[in-house]
Each structure stands twice: as structure tokens, then as C-alpha cells.
């Protein structure tokens, strides 16, 4: 195993592509506020599972992709996702031994923090109406985490991503 390099890069890239697709998928009007932060969730999974491969820099580049796709100020999501990846790397040893529901709580905090950053910066560059609905996506994301964890773990083992 030691002479074998990292494998399955395409699986990681593909998972982010799917996350982008889901993030752009049009939602019905009433469900717009509940859109989970797909990209952040997938990033969190890979950071916790493979911290030696997916880290701050990956988070930054993935976030830049989100900025391009959503047309927000370049660097906005990049910064928030990079910070989130950094915190996840700090916590990854602890997170791995948590049961899924406890991980979900941590995900709530991490995604919430990244959303807070996005919100603060968006407020600086242009006004946003203030409403508490803004926090719904992080809660939805936390609820989705246990299922996403199972799916992505299966994919990681099936395609032997190391």
C-alpha cells in the first residue's frame, strides 16, 4: 500500500460536480429557503474522511466554483468554505468517533458558521433583507448529514478512494 499513490481523484471531483448540480437545481418557490448546502456537506465529508488530500486549498477552489456559478462576489464562498474546511480539519479526529447524530450537530455549527460568513460579507457588499429564514439551510443540511454520510462512505469504499 505504501508505494501506491492517492487513488480515486475522479470520484471526489465527480461528487463535487453532483453537489454543484444539486445546488443549482431549481426548487419550487415555497421550498427555496430550505435548500441544503450540498457543496459544503460534500466538502465536509471528504475533509473528515481524507484530511490529507482534501483540505483548505480544495475548499477554497471548490468555493470559487460556487462563486462563479452563483454569480456572487468572487472569493465569498471560497473564503467561507476554506474556513469551514480548516475548522473541520482541526476537529476531524473528534468528529470521526462521534455517532452520526452528534456529527450532525457539529455539521449544523460548521455550516452555520460558513453561512454566517457569507451573510456578513454579503451585507458589506450589498444590502440584504434580514430574516431568520436565512438559517434554515444549515438546519436542513444537518438533518441530511447522516444519510449523506452513509451514501458517501459507501461510494468511498466501493471505489477505494484513499
Amino acid at each position: 500500500m505504501s508505494n501506491q499513490g492517492p487513488t480515486g481523484t475522479w470520484v471526489i471531483v465527480f461528487s463535487f460536480c453532483v453537489a454543484y448540480f444539486l445546488a443549482l437545481l431549481p426548487f419550487p418557490h415555497w421550498a427555496e429557503w430550505g435548500r441544503p448546502e450540498w457543496v459544503a456537506l460534500v466538502l465536509l465529508y471528504w475533509v473528515i474522511a481524507l484530511p490529507h488530500r482534501v483540505g483548505v486549498m480544495t475548499g477554497w477552489m471548490v468555493g470559487l466554483g460556487v462563486d462563479v456559478m452563483e454569480g456572487s462576489v468572487l472569493g465569498l464562498n471560497a473564503l467561507s468554505l476554506a474556513v469551514m474546511a480548516y475548522l473541520a480539519i482541526l476537529l476531524h479526529r473528534r468528529l470521526r468517533v462521534f455517532p452520526a447524530w452528534q456529527q450532525a450537530l457539529a455539521v449544523l455549527v460548521l455550516v452555520g458558521l460558513s453561512q454566517l460568513m457569507v451573510r456578513v460579507i454579503s451585507n458589506l457588499v450589498g444590502g440584504m433583507p434580514s430574516t431568520m429564514w436565512y438559517w434554515v439551510p444549515s438546519i436542513v443540511s444537518a438533518f441530511l448529514w447522516p444519510w449523506l454520510l452513509v451514501i458517501l462512505r459507501f461510494i468511498r469504499r466501493r471505489f477505494v478512494v484513499t
Binding site: V56, M57, W60, V73, L74, G75, L76, A78, L79, A82, V83, Y86, I121, V125
Partner: peptide, 16 residues
Amino acid sequence: MVVVAVLSLGLMFVDH
């Protein structure tokens, strides 16, 4: 981390 943060802040400033 610091490099990335500075890079993003710079990028945001230039873009905005």
C-alpha cells in the same frame, strides 16, 4: 489558511 483568507479578501475587494 491565512494565505487563503488574504487571497479571498483581496479577490472580493478587486471584484467588488
